[in-house]
Design a protein around this nucleic acid. Structure first.
Length: 486
RNA sequence: GGCCCCAUGGUCAAGCGGUUAAGACACCGCCCUUUCACGGCGGGAACAGGGGUUCGAGUCCCCUUGGGGUCACCA
């Protein structure tokens, strides 16, 4: 069997972490089996379609490291890969169903159906379409048409039970009565509804495995009936558990406790490999003890027997840890390229800003952060000309020996030729000798005076990065503004 | 409410009849360190409950409880 999987988002919004994970599982399985991964755009809800959304999906998928062999934007032998460009195809299959009496036109209005549902809900009975239009005579039909009603087309649901073997959950079976009656396959605007388009497309595109979210379990029996009506072999289904929000419920796009869109992670400076790794491990486990895995390793070990049946809470703290890990593993040089946009507004036009400076700056902070957008805040002391000491730093500067210490430091700094790590070591040593201050009493006030904080990267490297001019200037400013000599 | 799915620490999870019930994140402690981090070492912490089956059950079956999904001319 040719292994062919597809991810079929509807272009109604941004790429969501849940959607990305579904795409990822499809991708991993396809690649693992040496098969084909396909991107299809399910745009049958023309009201909700968002301009450029499909392009955005594609861009974010690519950024994440998920590429498709066939489908929208890349083409292939089973196209078109966009539903609204396949209308003629659907029409042909609807006609077949209509001709065989397997589908029929329904003239019930939205209001009438709504009414029906409410009554059913009140009486506690099952909510389902009554089938009132299922056996209309030609006359009745004409009468409805004359009233100006535009029909939908409904699929006549057979009365037998359907079942299928889910890759993740085993055998699932459904009574015919539980699918809610004859369902709509073509909407009154002439466009097919999801269950129909999806089934026709999956069959025509020869999809072998359908991996999708658990919320689609209840759609599966409907689709199975359609496969059956056409005499088609259904694909193998696998329903992945949901990603849960803090409240333990399916992540709602309106839930603000969790950052939900891939685009946002990208903007925050998460690395695609980290997100890829994290998402792959959300609801699946390779079994071993290793958690940091490359795309290649993930592809090699991906199997459905370890896909979890229960929902998984999206733990952003864990994602932050993982991203931090990937950040540490990157070289400062490579990472500096990604860091630059985050500090551009500070460093633009500064004479001290060079490629070497950027790399050193990156190397000073890359082990301390969780994502790149934290960089400007944590590295601010190096990005601005002047710094004011924070409360902790002020108290360190208030020690009685600090005025003399800074005087000595400035004098010694002025005569340093080699503004290098070794030079800084020598400088601090010289200050120690000349001032007769050592240890914390020496380092802390210096750090406070130069960086405005008591915490930060290695002092010598910090001095080098700031450069002679800024260091002396800051020491002078601190001396003048924040040291009060009694 | 009907139908369906799920159930191991706070979180992600290993386990597929016999284990002292892995590992990771988070948390706590210690070490490293002129600071903050990083790193290293160590610690607390789980099989929802009840019945079976079996010599033996986290693992298999049933019930209860709890959570979730879905009931559209949305996907």
């Amino acid at each position: 069997m040719n292994v062919r999987l597809r991810y079929a988002p509807s272009p109604t919004g941004h790429l969501h972490i849940g959607g990305a994970r579904t795409a990822l599982f499809n991708y991993l399985f396809a690649k693992h089996a040496g098969g084909t991964f396909i991107l299809r755009i399910e745009d049958t809800d023309i009201e909700r379609n968002v301009d450029r959304a499909a392009e955005e999906f594609a861009a974010n998928l690519r950024w994440l490291g998920i590429s498709w062999d066939e489908g929208a934007f890349v083409g292939g032998d089973y196209g078109p890969y966009v539903c609204t460009k396949r209308l003629d195809i659907y029409k042909e299959y609807v006609e077949k169903l209509l001709a065989q009496g397997l589908a029929y036109r329904c003239y019930c209005s939205a209001e009438e159906l709504q009414q029906e549902r409410e009554t059913q809900l009140q009486t506690g009975s099952m909510v389902q379409y009554s089938g009132s239009c299922s056996h209309l005579t030609e006359e009745q039909r004409r009468a409805f048409e004359d009233e100006g009603r535009t029909p939908v087309i409904r699929f006549r649901v057979p009365s037998h039970t359907v079942s299928f073997n889910d890759m993740i959950r085993g055998t699932l079976s459904f009574e015919s009565s539980s699918v809610g009656g004859d369902f709509v396959i073509v909407k009154s605007n002439g466009i097919p509804a999801y269950n129909f388009a999806c089934t026709v497309d999956d069959h025509l595109m020869q999809i072998s495995h359908v991996i999708r979210g658990e919320e689609h379990i209840s759609n599966t029996p409907r689709q199975l009936y359609i496969y059956e009506a056409f005499g088609w072999e259904p694909p193998i289904f696998g329903h992945v558990s949901l990603i849960l929000g803090e409240d333990g419920k399916k992540l709602s796009k309106r839930d603000e406790s969790i950052v939900q869109f891939i685009e946002q992670y990208r903007e925050m400076g998460y690395l695609p490999d980290a997100l890829f790794n994290f998402l792959a491990l959300l609801g699946w486990s390779p079994g071993g003890k290793e958690e940091i895995l490359t795309k290649q390793q993930l592809i090699e070990s991906f199997e459905f027997d370890r896909v979890s049946k229960s929902g998984a809470f999206f733990d952003s703290v864990r994602l932050a840890w993982m991203n931090g890990h990937y950040l540490k593993e990157m070289s400062a040089e490579d990472l500096s390229v990604l860091v630059e946009p985050y500090i551009r507004s500070y460093v633009e036009g500064k004479e001290w800003f060079t490629k070497e400076w950027l790399i050193e700056f990156t190397s000073l902070f890359k082990d301390k952060i969780t994502c790149l957008s934290e960089i400007p805040a944590i590295g601010l002391m190096f990005l601005v000309d002047q710094v004011a000491p924070d409360e902790e730093a002020k108290s360190s500067l208030s020690l009685p020996h600090v005025a003399d210490l800074l005087q000595v430091f400035i004098e010694q700094a002025r005569v340093v030729d080699e503004w290098t790590p070794d030079g800084m070591k020598a400088l601090v040593k010289a200050v120690q000798t000349a001032s007769n201050v050592k240890g914390k009493d020496l380092f802390m006030p210096l750090r406070a005076a130069i960086t405005g904080q008591l915490h930060g990267p290695d002092l010598n490297r910090s001095l080098v990065l700031l450069g002679k001019e800024r260091v002396i200037k800051r020491a002078q400013t601190t001396l003048a503004q924040f040291i009060h000599i009694e």
